[in-house]
Amino acid sequence: MAVCVAIIGKDNSPKFLSSLNPDEELCFQYKILSSLDIVEEKIHGVNRATDNRELFLGLLYALETHKIYGYVTNTKMKFIIVVDSSNIALRDNEIRSMFRKIHSEYADIICNPFYIPGEPITFKSFANNIKNIMTGTV
């Protein structure tokens, strides 16, 4: 069960952010912003693993209270999931499947003619779906 999900665009500006606890949102924003550095490094860094063909980047940061996972699509959209550290039951595979679901949601939304790529996503149905993915009720 993710605590926060963020979708970040090609230019590293936030397109969508949703968290279960709105009070912590600012705090999450900071954390996610910092984790972008790691993402950038993993994608573009000199020492990146050249044979990593996966879109899933794995654990980016393990903070005291949260863990941050990253995923970058081929179109350079970045998805970030923040998970509570105390939630040890959440395995890697579950995280991957969450990312896949988010990716398919995103692919759907980009085909929506009312959505202009590059702008923040403000669709209610999208937000609802992401919330469902976060809480695992999909």
Binding site: Y30, L33, S34, L36, D37, I38, E40, E41
Partner: peptide, 13 residues
């Protein structure tokens, strides 16, 4: 040090 490795966001944090 973060700036040195290019993690500018973390550095500013």
């Amino acid at each position: 040090l973060y700036t040195q490795i290019g993690f500018i966001r973390k550095a500013s944090f």
